[in-house]
Design a protein around this nucleic acid. Sequence first.
DNA 1: TTAAAGCTGTGAAAAAAGCCACTAAAACAG
DNA 2: CTGTTTTAGTGGCTTTTTTCACAGCTTTAA
Lengths: 210, 210
Amino acid sequence: MKKATKTEIPRKTVYRLSVYLRCLHKLKLNKLQTVSSEALARAAGVKPTQLRKDLTYLGQFGIRGLGYDVEQLSQMITVHLGTNRLQPVILVGAGNLGNALLQYHGFEPEGFEIIAAFDQDPQRQRDKILRIPLHPMSKLPQIIQEFRVRMAILAVPAAAAQEVANALIDAGILGILNFAPIVPAVPEHVALNNVNLAIELENLSYFLKE
Amino acid sequence: MKKATKTEIPRKTVYRLSVYLRCLHKLKLNKLQTVSSEALARAAGVKPTQLRKDLTYLGQFGIRGLGYDVEQLSQMITVHLGTNRLQPVILVGAGNLGNALLQYHGFEPEGFEIIAAFDQDPQRQRDKILRIPLHPMSKLPQIIQEFRVRMAILAVPAAAAQEVANALIDAGILGILNFAPIVPAVPEHVALNNVNLAIELENLSYFLKE
DNA sequence: TTAAAGCTGTGAAAAAAGCCACTAAAACAG
DNA sequence: CTGTTTTAGTGGCTTTTTTCACAGCTTTAA
């Protein structure tokens, strides 16, 4: 018997869907109309069976003997990931990493725009050329409300992370991409993704094969 | 029957050990001598039972009724992760993200030093102040050999990623921390960790609860 | 010394993720 | 048409990861 409620997409699958989407985008640039699970899987660094299984969560629209329609598939994934509409994002902490992220234009092609940055010291901005405004922390609630911001990038030092996270949540932020080297405690209703570059390196070093 | 060879530490556990290590470091700064699994787990954002289970892979040195010795535990983890000695790292690609990472000093406290950067265009460096030398790609093999570099950070555009990855591997690199928005194919003996900031954001946005 | 409370260590169960073998559909070649 | 090849979809097996329940040390208090 089929479930009445639509099945939840597994966490890992959601993550991989983003990867597939990125690969499909590249294929589109190359004017490819269709792609097989094998080719796409290789591009994404996963096994073909896993790719196919992942895609079944979105329904069936592969063509047996041929593959998937690149355009259709990428639209399908986009719809499911809910990245149709542009999402405004704010960044807190204009230190080393924060500035780096501000200068990094890799978010925009994916539908995210950093509309404002915040820092304790709003004079801190070195790169005057940046077109992203830098505000003092006190303007956080106002801007979040005004632009209906739901996600924030947290790039402050460890010591400030929890406090700033609290402020963000109080102001209505629902998702935090955390670069601070501690894991802030957040209430149930807030989504949190942690990225720690040092840990990534450390982890890599463990898996070096001699 | 027990395995003769010492059991492998699970992938996920290795990753979390790094997180614990970071938390322990903070505790040390606060002059705490011991910590319970519950407290440390909360700091790391995991469940206490998971923390304890993770630690059993390193042996037993918790004290029942009391907790873990902060100093001893952090040394234990350090030894197991093999981060006793400093590791030289190189960075390839001095674009937006590459420069950002060069300016980011978060690696050094964790025992990694970016000793050199490489770019197709070695004039590219904007920040003249940087004390990290920027070399042309042609010097890759020489420097990797000279400094016995085993890990590289890859921060080049998608189009160049595979080619540069190949060059790194040919020159003897054993681990790649990849920031490029594609997953390069690497041989069996090379470890690869992928970080894609855009995907992290996209992933977060999916899990926003309304 | 004894009792109570606080914690760790761990086997076993449960859940999640990954993988494979096989089925079925479509395309293609002749 | 017909047979062959290519490729998606899937049930369920295997492995990995997480969680649970509880046994067993340690400390503390009286």
